[in-house]
Write a protein that binds this DNA or RNA. Structure first.
Length: 549
RNA sequence: GCCUUCUUAGUUCAAUGGAUAGAACAGCCCCGUCCUAAGGGGUAGAUGCUGGUUCGAUUCCGGCAGGAGGCACCA
């Protein structure tokens, strides 16, 4: 519909002698203004040297004629906006479509035929996942689902750190404790904290840890490698439990150790071609010439840094799952580093670099100050989820429902904001399950489903309301919202829409009785359309849809 | 010092250069004969400061103030 209006506006502008006008067709901020609005007259006024109001008037006349029975009226408002209100039959058609299509309602085709690989979560083995990792995992899953919904074939991958100084610190700590069989992520996390502390304060320990790091890369110390493999398995097992709880699975779980060799090879190769240069014994990329930070790719100890591993990873992904686009989701503290890696990659493999998009997620900040896994004052992901589930249990005896509500609350808290902006984490508030929250959306859906469950025996009244309900005019925009959220990789756009949708539903629910009313058949159709829209929207966000609350 | 980014109501967040800057929480006032009140209705409350571009700026550009992140051998 939006396309159709856009086309009509373009043709109308052409008849008036304006070409290549940049205008928008959008849902007006105020519902009373209509279903669509365009600023075309304002945008074209200058080019045509006409009064915007007058231009809007003639444009509106053309549009009324061209759109015919599709619209009920076209009005000019304010400085020259053109507001378009759809005919009720068109609204009814959209609602009927939502009703009929069910889980297919809102599926798009913008990315049809494309292969997209999405990387996110990226946890470090030998550290516990903390609440910061929740952000990337949750945003990543939502982005993957949005892109999938737009028609793309999507592969999910995660890139875990399993080698390097941090791992050496954890291994040192485990050895210090005489642990040869680590059994829990928290045990390993504590060993890491101990190793980090020793690295800072104890020169002997520092030397030992550095040696362990080199030995890890060499991979010849069988005893060490055995402990490394066991520790990694325990960490990864814990990650998988959290991923499952959050509704995420990965097609590829890559690790540093998989990309080290190819990363080094590619960087060495780039060194010969002059992409990199040697400085103080290290191989660096001179970022200044491109306006990015200069960074070390291979250290003077001949070990690769994360940057070299990232280069290796880009090639590994290409080899395992060739794609048309590659999306990488990380914390925003990685943005500078990522620019350098992409700049370097751009000189080595331009095609791989240009198809890569970096999405930065916000930092989860504690009201009490910065978290640091090195200092051990972190809120672990597992612990946090547990505490929210506990809170949700107060109102939900069913443990499955409590879990669904808790996961919904956490995801909503993170997805409601534009990715990239920091999230202030206040435990009291984030545990609240009311108002602008995941459970608010879930609850609206539960109430609608309950009506539909009662209504299974058939509908009574066949009358229709004089005007479509406000929620119907909202439902018809769902496919466009889902498409835009996918295009902009911005799940928050969908969250805002669904919150508004839930509000309209609750409002209708309070005012109108569905069952047994004179308009029962009509209202049931609206209820089904709402339920499908909310279910599909929440599913795209990865928010569970409980059967009852 | 350099680079990036942010600053909207008491608080947490929205708003492709457009209309009366939207919500929610907290506050105050209402709604329990009716499909689940985790609800609904009402009320009050905000664009850091300062120039510029524009018919029009929360949005773009400059300056100032304040916050966050990054800046070669950590990830």
């Amino acid at each position: 519909m939006e396309e159709r209006i856009r086309k009509a506006v373009n043709e109308a502008l052409a008849t008036l002698g304006a070409a290549d006008v940049a205008f928008v067709v959008e849902r007006p901020g105020v519902a009373a203004h209509g279903d669509y609005a365009t600023n075309a007259a304002l945008a074209a006024a200058k080019q045509l040297e006409k009064n915007p109001r007058e231009l809007a008037d003639s444009l509106a006349r053309h549009l009324t004629e061209m759109l015919g029975e599709v619209v009920s009226h076209v009005a000019v408002a304010g400085p020259g906006f053109i507001n378009i209100t759809l005919a009720r039959e068109v609204v009814a058609l959209a609602v009927a479509e939502a009703d009929a299509k069910g889980s297919d309602w809102g599926k798009g085709t913008a990315e049809a035929g494309k292969r997209v690989i999405v990387e996110y979560s990226n946890p470090n083995a030998f550290k516990e996942m903390h609440i910061g990792h929740l952000v990337g995992t949750i945003v990543g899953e939502a982005v993957a689902r949005l892109v999938e919904n737009a028609g793309a074939a999507v592969a999910r991958d995660t890139f875990g750190g399993d080698i390097g100084p941090n791992v050496a610190k954890a291994l040192w700590g485990l050895r210090e404790n005489g642990t040869s069989e680590p059994t829990s992520a928290s045990e390993i996390g504590e060993a890491y904290v101990a190793g980090s502390a020793a690295y800072e304060s104890d020169a002997v320990a520092k030397g030992e840890i550095d040696a362990l790091n080199q030995a890890l890369y060499a991979g010849t110390d069988e005893g060490l490698m055995e402990l490394w493999r066991k520790g990694r398995a325990v960490s990864v097992g814990e990650f998988r439990r959290i991923w499952e709880l959050l509704g995420t699975h990965f097609d590829f779980e890559f690790f540093d150790s998989d990309t080290t060799a190819s990363g080094v090879r590619v960087v060495r190769d780039g060194l010969e071609k002059g992409v990199f240069r040697v400085s103080d014994g290290a191989v660096i990329y001179d970022g200044e010439k491109k306006g990015v930070h200069t960074m070390v790719f291979i250290t003077s100890h001949d070990t690769p840094t994360y940057e070299a591993k990232d280069i290796g990873l880009a090639f590994l992904k290409e080899e395992r799952w060739p794609s048309d686009a590659s999306i990488v989701i990380t914390g925003n503290e990685q943005t500078g580093r990522f620019k350098t890696v992409l700049a370097a990659l751009g000189e080595i493999a331009p095609l791989v670099a240009t198809k890569t998009t970096h999405v930065a997620t916000g930092f989860l900040k504690l009201a009490s100050g910065k978290m640091s896994s090195r200092e051990g004052n972190v809120i672990t992901a597992a612990g946090f989820i547990r505490s929210v589930i506990e809170k949700a249990s107060e109102k939900n005896a069913d443990p499955l429902v409590a879990e669904q509500v808790a996961v919904g609350a956490i995801k909503y808290m993170i997805l409601r904001q534009a990715p990239g902006s920091d999230i202030v984490f206040d435990e009291e508030k984030s545990l609240s399950l009311e108002g602008d929250s995941g459970p608010y959306l879930q609850y609206a859906l539960v109430r609608a489903r309950k009506i539909l469950a009662y209504a299974e025996t058939g509908a009574g009244g066949t009358e229709e309301p004089a005007e479509p309900y406000a929620i119907e005019r909202l439902i018809l925009h769902y496919p466009a919202v889902a498409a835009r959220a996918a295009r902009e990789l911005a799940p928050n756009l969908l969250v805002t829409y669904l919150t508004e949708l839930a509000g309209e539903w609750n409002s209708l629910y309070a005012k109108e009785q569905v069952l047994g009313s004179p308009e029962e058949a009509y209202k049931q159709r609206v209820t089904r359309a709402f339920a499908h829209t909310m279910t599909n929207g929440l599913t795209l966000l990865g928010i569970p849809t409980p059967e009852r609350m």
